[in-house]
């Protein structure tokens, strides 16, 4: 049987979006977001999919998540199609599987930088430690437990093109837009 989605979609999706907006507007801030469990995704990632994906958005599922159950759940509740990384609006998976395909995700064009993908990274943990973040949305600096990777610096250097990341862990969510400058400490 297909796992459940929101029970009161308009209100629950509104709350989920505000959490996502809060996270994207304040990189490094870890927010709570309520979503269904038992889907194969964390409740946070499930809430993002239900709130943002629809028939017009392609999803790339990392092999670790690619099960008939999750595919069925996404198709039934959102209608979103599954695609190769090159056509993805959202890419879902753990960092180890997302990192290699990052160059294949659409990063937008210089005149349409908004036409870029949003990777949703499922994390084992999420805390305000590690990499130092500065940029729009951050008053002085923030810290976020990002994977140690040169990918974030390369992403920021491509501005105005680039990817905007969500990091999910359980019912928690953080974000890293392309404008954030990441210093690994």
């Amino acid at each position: 049987m297909t796992a459940p989605a929101f029970t009161d979609t308009p209100r629950e999706a509104a709350r989920a979006f505000r959490a996502a907006l809060d996270a994207m507007a304040r990189p490094g801030r870890i927010v709570e977001i309520a979503g269904p469990s038992g889907t194969g995704l964390s409740p946070a990632a499930a809430a993002l999919v239900l709130t943002l994906a629809d028939r017009g958005t392609g999803i790339w599922l990392a092999p670790a998540l690619d099960t008939p159950g999750l595919r069925g759940w996404i198709t039934f509740h959102t209608g979103a199609g599954f695609t190769a990384p090159e056509g993805a609006t959202f890419a879902l998976g753990p960092w180890e599987e997302i990192e290699p395909i990052l160059p294949r995700l659409p990063a937008g064009q210089p005149d349409y930088p908004d036409r870029s993908a949003t990777p949703i990274i499922e994390c084992q943990s999420l805390s305000k430690t590690g990499a130092r973040l500065t940029g729009p949305g951050i008053r002085d600096s923030a810290r976020l437990s990002l994977p140690d990777s040169p990918a974030f610096a390369a992403n920021a250097a491509a501005f105005p093109c680039g990817l905007d990341f969500f990091f999910t862990c359980g019912a928690h969510l953080a974000a890293l837009p392309r404008t954030t400058h990441v210093e690994v400490c």
Binding site: A20, L21, M24, A25, T51, S116, G137, T179
Partner: peptide, 20 residues
């Protein structure tokens, strides 16, 4: 809800690219 999803995606990209 479909319209809201479309607007919400636009808002998130707008926030990610300030001023665009």
């Amino acid at each position: 809800e479909d319209t809201k999803r479309m607007i919400r995606r636009a808002i998130l990209k707008g926030v990610a690219i300030p001023g665009y």
